[in-house]
Simulated assay, not measured.
Amino acid sequence: MGFWKRVLIDTILFIALAGLFAGTGMFYISSAWIALLASFVLAILNVLVKPILVILSLPINVLTLGLFSIVINGAMLMLTSAFIGADFFHFSSFWSAMLIAIIMSICNTIITDHQENHY
């Protein structure tokens, strides 16, 4: 899947998840433009920072049979929140970032699988 398709899909997922968790205060996005900016920043961080974190956490990732990658995804979302700013894009806790990371991973897997099988 192309870079811009993934950014667009993550933008839509951010908006949908912010609407889903609107009453709980777990996840907040101030506007659709901030969601687009956040998905772009997340994509850049996934290209530049995530491979380094995966290599550094390889022993614990092997011990947990890959489940530690969810923690890395949550950390990427928290880092994105730090870059965008807490007034525009934030999570109430690290656990809420991990929950959003799990939901986004599941949705991205379904969409990617559908894209590969559809064409």
Rank of each mutant, 00 (worst) to 15 (best):
L67H: 04
I12L: 15
M78V: 10
L17I: 13
M98Q: 06
Y119V: 13
F3W: 15
T80R: 00
L99S: 06
L17G: 03
G66I: 09
L13K: 01
L63F: 15
S81L: 05
L20G: 00
P51C: 08
A38F: 01
V41W: 03
S57G: 08
L17F: 14
L20A: 13
V49M: 11
A38W: 00
T24S: 15
A22D: 09
L77C: 10
L99G: 07
V54Q: 12
S69R: 05
C107Q: 05
K5S: 13
H90Q: 12
S30H: 06
I102S: 07
A38H: 00
I15K: 03
I15P: 01
H114S: 10
A101P: 05
T80S: 03
I84S: 06
D10K: 02
N117E: 12
L56W: 09
A97V: 04
L63A: 15
L99E: 05
G2N: 15
N73D: 11
A32V: 14
N108S: 09
A18Q: 07
S30F: 00
I100T: 05
I34K: 04
M78A: 08
M104T: 10
I70Q: 07
T64R: 01
F68L: 10
I52M: 10
S31H: 09
W4K: 01
L77Y: 10
A101K: 04
V47P: 00
K5I: 10
A101W: 06
V62P: 00
T24C: 05
D10F: 10
M78T: 03
A86W: 09
L13S: 02
F94Y: 13
S105R: 02
M78P: 00
C107R: 03
Q115T: 10
F91I: 01
V7Y: 04
R6N: 12
N46C: 04
Q115F: 12
V54W: 03
H114P: 00
L36K: 06
T80K: 00
K5F: 13
L36T: 07
M1P: 06
L17H: 03
C107T: 12
A101C: 10
I9Q: 07
I34C: 04
A35T: 05
A16P: 01
A43T: 14
D113G: 14
D87Q: 14
I103G: 03
I84A: 08
I106W: 05
I60A: 11
